[in-house]
Simulated assay, not measured.
Amino acid sequence: MQRLATTVETWWPETPAFLHSGITDLGTEVTNRVVKIIACDTCGFRSPVNQRLRTRCTAIRRARGHLDAR
Rank of each mutant, 00 (worst) to 15 (best):
R46L: 09
A5R: 13
T55F: 02
P13E: 04
N32C: 06
T58N: 06
S47K: 11
E14S: 02
T42Y: 01
Q51G: 07
H20K: 15
T10Q: 03
F45S: 05
L19V: 12
T15G: 10
C40H: 14
S21R: 05
R56T: 14
V49W: 04
S21P: 02
T7Y: 15
N32K: 12
T24P: 00
P16W: 00
S21N: 14
R46D: 08
A17P: 00
R64L: 09
R56F: 10
H66K: 10
I23F: 02
R61I: 12
G27Q: 00
T7C: 05
I38W: 00
V35F: 07
V8C: 07
R62Q: 11
P13W: 01
L4C: 04
C57H: 09
R46P: 04
E14Y: 00
A17L: 00
T42N: 03
E14W: 01
E14H: 00
A39E: 12
A59C: 13
I38Q: 03
G22V: 06
A17V: 00
T31I: 15
L53K: 14
E29A: 15
F18A: 02
F45K: 12
C57G: 06
C40G: 09
T58E: 05
F45A: 11
T58Y: 03
W11Y: 13
R56A: 15
A59I: 04
A63R: 12
A39V: 06
P13M: 05
W12H: 09
G65D: 07
S47M: 06
T58C: 14
W12C: 05
I23T: 11
N32V: 05
C43Y: 06
T28L: 08
L26V: 09
P48F: 01
L26T: 10
G27E: 03
L53G: 02
T55V: 15
H20L: 09
H66D: 13
R46G: 15
I38Y: 01
V35Q: 08
L4Q: 08
I38D: 00
H66T: 09
S47L: 07
I23P: 00
C57E: 12
T15S: 07
K36G: 11
V49A: 11
T15K: 10
I23R: 10
T7P: 02
T10S: 04
V34D: 01
